[in-house]
Design a protein around this nucleic acid. Structure first.
Lengths: 249, 249
DNA sequence: CGGCGGATTGAGAAAAATCAACTCTCGTGG
DNA sequence: CCACGAGAGTTGATTTTTCTCAATCCGCCG
């Protein structure tokens, strides 16, 4: 029976302990067994990034693939006048295999101190050639990414500001649960309000206001500026899915 | 040297004559050679759809994969209250291999009379198992799709209405050129204004207004309601990339 | 020729962006 | 240990963009 990603860690084919992120564009983050990952790592070079340092920039020749082992990163694209769209975040266990173009189509920048491993494209291609089962896995994972990308298109194209934030929070909560393997009621926000805004297609002010709105409705509580507690998960999900006709009330 | 999709038909690895679409989410449309396609077709069943008929609906069990041979289709997702996001269009040569989930995450509906071939997932999996080189090709094509999806996120998250329309038109023009293999100055719009709006995250009225705006600026001309002639390609590209600070002038 | 649906245009409303002021946090140094 | 300051975050007022609602136009098919 073919492996079908469902977003639940327990459904992974090999039970690899690496966690998953709900929001990743060209990143591939799961489904490789420990031996495979060890093999990949033996080809790789470890690199530490301090907060705000970049692994690479949009337009750099795409010579490397990456795997995150610690920390968190954001992926973004800039328009000519500086407008920025964050297309995803990366967390430990996420893999970035941009075997698509000559140049990176986006910039990858650390949200905090981060450790990652990189491999040359050639070494990676050789490795994949020697491990054919990876091929299919990569395809399935890429297809899973595509489904995520579609969800993000729905969010950006059709959801109201409060719905976007609710969706984002739900994704982060579910990711936290996949990592811990337990039911969770709170999660961490390793990114700034501006980063959230640039991911959700909003401004930092709107993010702030919608945060206040979700709070005043009793859906969430801020344990700190970067820790969100979910008080009413069903209502949050309802809002994320656009069930709430009157978003502001 | 690994095959790297660049969007140009001449760069395809096998020179398969099937065309490409600029806008496709989980669709995979190129890179398979004629013999492979013939093999796939021998497994498949031909199906004709009349305009507005669906190949399948969001939530249907995902038992089939598809290949388009004639016509055009739209892929969309609905929110609870009926808001719709079109995540892509499919054209002849496009392949839809949703080997991701138990259920389709979107609806596929014909824009006009359309001919497609479907295969059961099992038959397709078997076929791919017998043709391992397809595996890698599928991964590369999916990665290419992901890059497209990212571009669409930038469009939906950060571009103004006129810029979205300009980007869309440029994509369609470039696709038309890839199909014909020649420089083109006009292209067809097989979808309604509402479809365009739902693809660009706008309303039909805004699409209409921005169309008028591009026209009044001399960037395009409407040969008919569904045929756009590009008069100033550079200006259109400039607008698509967000170079125009004053979008309305 | 008539009518229907798609497309356009206009006026007003709503959502979010922008601009501006202020507050809170947190790290640093006295 | 506490005061300070810088940057992040919040809140408010206003503007802009896009949406919504409504009227009309147009093209196409019967």
């Amino acid at each position: 029976m073919p492996y079908v990603p469902t977003g639940k860690l327990t459904d992974l084919p090999h039970g690899h302990p690496c966690e998953t992120c709900p929001v990743r564009p060209i990143t591939i983050c799961r489904g490789l067994d420990a031996a495979t990952l060890a093999g990949m790592r033996s080809l790789g070079t470890m690199q530490r990034l301090r907060s705000e340092q970049s692994a690479f920039h949009e337009g750099d020749p795409a010579k490397r693939v990456f795997m995150v082992t610690q920390g968190a990163l954001k992926l973004y694209t800039l328009l000519a006048d500086g407008r920025r769209q964050i297309t995803g975040f990366m967390f430990p266990g996420d893999f970035l295999g941009v075997s698509v173009d000559e140049e990176y189509a986006f910039t990858v920048e650390a949200l905090k101190n981060t450790e990652l491993w990189w491999f040359s494209r050639e070494a990676f291609d050789r490795f994949v050639g020697e491990h054919p089962q990876i091929e299919r896995e990569l395809y399935r994972l890429a297809a899973h990414e595509l489904a995520e990308a579609q969800r993000q298109m729905v969010l950006l194209g059709r959801k109201a500001a409060a719905e976007r934030l609710a969706s984002f929070f739900l994704s982060l909560l579910e990711r936290t649960e996949r990592v811990s393997g337990e039911r969770e009621t709170s999660f961490d926000l390793p990114m700034t309000r501006i980063d959230i805004a640039d991911y959700l297609g909003l401004t930092k002010e709107t993010v702030s206001r919608m945060l206040a709105h979700l709070r005043s409705r009793g859906l969430i509580r801020l344990q700190s500026q970067s820790c969100v507690e979910v008080l009413d998960r069903d209502a949050l999900r309802g809002m994320a899915q656009g069930e709430t006709a009157e978003v502001l009330g």
